[in-house]
Amino acid sequence: MRKRRQFIVNKKLQFQYVSFAIVPLIVGAAFVYYLIYLMTMNQMAIPEIILYYLVPAMRRTNEVLMVIAPLALIGLFVATVLASHRLAGPLHRLDRELHRVASGDYSVRITFRKGDELSSLAHSLNSVLDVLEQKSKEA
């Protein structure tokens, strides 16, 4: 099996996959961040205490996040694109091979890369193709 060269084979599907993974994570992280800020602020209660302790701590946290967050996002994006490819790649390949079957070529066998999703589906389809090829030879 050839090594992966193209990691984006189905833009729409993979974009959805990446969105489903990243957007809830960002929203959740932002919500937790705000919740901690709000609870801490309410707990400190007195304005001078908030101003001298919480506000500088939040400023420092924001400065660190300004550096870490973009790196984390890039890493997360790459990781989810790679993960999505393990699903989109086999689907793309399945689509291509089934077109060949539809045109009458029953010798096609579907093979996925090691670790790809849907391997059991490929195995079942290959069994079907075995039967189809056998029947076409008998006919």
């Binding site: 602020m41 304005p47 101003l51």
Partner: peptide, 13 residues
């Protein structure tokens, strides 16, 4: 004697 009107953030309080 403080009278507090907490908001959604410190600057809004």
């Amino acid at each position: 004697l403080y009278v507090c009107f907490p908001g959604i953030s410190f600057s809004r309080s």
